[in-house]
């Protein structure tokens, strides 16, 4: 199918992008890598009047070491994120989850910032951002602001980014030396996650000293399993991990669709969390 008509703007700075959004009004839409937006446009499920293409904004492109954090421009592709030595060294969980995003072609084109701003509840990276305590830099007509992950994801396909704002970058606190695993259950390799568990742990003497757990597709947005994180401290056996993971579905209200109902998703949250933590911790 062919998208409906729209005007096209290709700014070269963030300020220009914001100005274009303001000028475009409510019907303006940002096009990053386009891997989420293009199908929407083609199926005419969305008909924006103005498309603001942010792919040529240099500021949104790099991955930088900011001391205690790694800052990733919103326009960095999944492929660049997954292969970045900085990400692999300091953000093992983000690298692991990003390798699971869609397929090679889509990872070449799609951006991490775009995926975050799209906020699909089945997306692979939002729970990582939440679990790792990332913060989001957003530019708007009033300047720039920084929003923690816990406030960034608002609802289904809804974030703190306003209609006239641009997500500029995402800053992840370094988790150097933490090991990680992303356990995703999907029906086919192309399918979105039914549920996935993102786990990263810091080990101390064979036991888990700290853990961060995020869950994919267990609600309108990503979920952080803080009860599990706390229960995991000191765990050094599979039994202890399994016991902690039993709390993974608590307080969640997952969606129901043709792939899974809520009860099955809750079961998966427990099972996949157990597996993700065990693999991250190297405990079997």
């Amino acid at each position: 199918m062919i998208p409906a008509k729209f005007d096209y703007v290709r700014p070269s700075t963030v300020d220009e992008a914001v100005a274009a959004l303001v000028a475009g009004g409510d019907d303006a839409k940002i096009l990053g890598g386009g891997q989420s937006l293009m199908p929407v446009l083609r199926l005419r499920m969305g008909e924006p009047s103005v498309i603001v293409d942010t792919t040529r904004i240099d500021e949104m492109k790099g991955i930088t070491d900011a001391g205690d954090a790694i800052v990733i421009g919103a326009g960095v592709t999944h492929d660049e994120v997954a292969k970045s030595p900085l990400v692999r060294e300091h953000l093992a969980l983000l690298a692991a989850a990003t390798e699971h995003v869609a397929d090679r072609q889509i990872r070449h084109r799609g951006t991490m910032g775009g995926a975050m701003a799209h906020a699909d509840p089945a997306g692979d990276q939002p729970p990582v951002a939440l679990a790792m305590g990332a913060s989001f830099t957003i530019a708007g007509p009033g300047g720039r602001r920084t929003v923690p992950a816990s406030e960034f994801f608002v609802d289904y396909f809804t974030t703190a980014v306003g209609p006239d704002e641009v997500l500029v970058s995402v800053s992840f606190p370094k988790h150097t030396g933490w090991s990680a695993h992303y356990e995703k259950l999907n029906r086919t390799a192309q399918a979105w996650a039914i549920v996935a568990a993102a786990a990263t742990v810091r080990m101390d003497g064979g036991a888990i000293a700290e853990a961060r757990i995020g869950l994919t597709n267990m609600g309108p947005g990503p979920i952080r399993a803080t009860a599990v994180e706390q229960a995991l401290v000191g765990a050094s056996t599979m039994a202890a991990i399994a016991a902690a993971a039993e709390q993974a579905a608590e307080g969640t209200s997952p969606t129901e669709d043709i792939h899974a109902d809520a009860e099955f998703r809750k079961h998966l949250a427990r099972t996949l969390t157990k597996r993700a933590v065990a693999k991250a911790a190297g405990i079997s």
């Binding site: 386009g34 293009m38 199908p39 498309i51 397929d103 072609q105 889509i106 070449h108 084109r109 192309q190």
Partner: peptide, 24 residues
């Protein structure tokens, strides 16, 4: 297709594979 699933339209864009149905 119209959902970037089938990959039949794959081309190299600046040397990297992309689905040309999902690029303007």
């Amino acid at each position: 297709c119209d959902t970037s699933n089938c990959g039949a339209c794959t081309v190299l864009l600046d040397g990297r594979s992309v689905k040309s149905c999902s690029v303007l």
